[in-house]
Design a protein around this nucleic acid. Structure first.
Lengths: 158, 158
DNA sequence: TTAAGTGCAAATATTTTGCTGTCAC
DNA sequence: GTGACAGCAAAATATTTGCACTTAA
């Protein structure tokens, strides 16, 4: 599983946030959903569907894959999580994270697979530029950068 | 298939560019690869593996899916194409485009599925920022923005 | 000539759907 | 009580692998 560093932004969101959001929107809360939401809120890394299932089963052993996918679809539809592929470093699957208060960039090392998140004011400027130049209403934006971290860069002296 | 507008950046690359690059790197050139490379260079849109296969079969009817996947892997390994998911508007599959001379942003309308590409100097600034702040060597970067275009925006009066 | 590439078949991985029984409200 | 949800099975979709045959250099 790909690791997430720094991050922090979604730690600013209080525990039970996703559950509260769904309840506030009139979505029925089941034991299975609670287990899945807790996994997503407690996640230290970006999780794929299989990892979410595995961890959620600690709480609720009988939970099914299908329920995980359906819950992820639900959360996406409500705009509460983002779906990433993290440059496919980990294969063809997708990764999920709670939509952060402040959008951030994902910077992934192609050699060691570490994923660092950083925020940038330029990111918001780009969004503004798109809105103005294309008369486009930006709902969300995603930046994924691939390269080599200090420890892994091919030419250290470069 | 998702449409690509504007773009233009990869039209600046001469015809046969991919083929030339591979040959220059000592990669064996087969009829099947030639057919696939021509499809990618002539593409007006972002293509997924199935579309590439379908079009390549005009030239070479017996070509197999597997060969398409293997050629895409080859091109990715050489950094000659980029793999995108375009916010999964078209399902779980991936889309491919020849790596452009100037990197651009992909802006996708969540309702009509149209994908517009634009370049932004801020994009390069962000890359510079990442390189400096994280001591990171940026190999490539990808920006995907989702929202609503002028025609599709939910609140027209907003 | 021969190592690399191809096609076919089958496997694997990921996600979705149909249906029946169950549970939150 | 009832409509939304869960689990199971199976299908659908996307991609990869093993192997015998073919071909570019």
């Amino acid at each position: 599983m790909l690791q997430k560093e720094s991050g922090g932004s979604n730690k600013a969101v209080s525990r039970g946030y996703l559950q509260g959001q769904l309840v506030a929107r009139g979505v029925r809360m089941t034991q299975q959903r609670r287990a899945i939401l807790q996994v997503m809120e407690g996640a230290r890394g970006h999780l794929d569907a299989a990892s979410i299932l595995r961890i959620a089963r600690h709480d609720h052993p009988d939970i099914d894959r299908v329920t995980v996918y359906r819950t992820l679809t639900l959360l996406k539809r409500h705009g509460l999580i983002d779906e990433l592929d993290l440059l496919h470093l980990g294969g063809v699957g997708h990764y999920y994270e709670q939509r952060p208060l402040q959008q951030h960039l994902h910077v992934a090392c192609l050699r060691c697979g570490r994923v660092v998140e950083i925020a940038s004011p330029l990111f918001d400027k780009i969004k503004g530029q798109v809105e103005r130049n294309l008369a486009f209403r930006v709902a969300f934006a995603r930046v994924e950068i691939g390269g080599y971290c200090e420890k892994c860069r091919p030419e250290t002296s470069g």
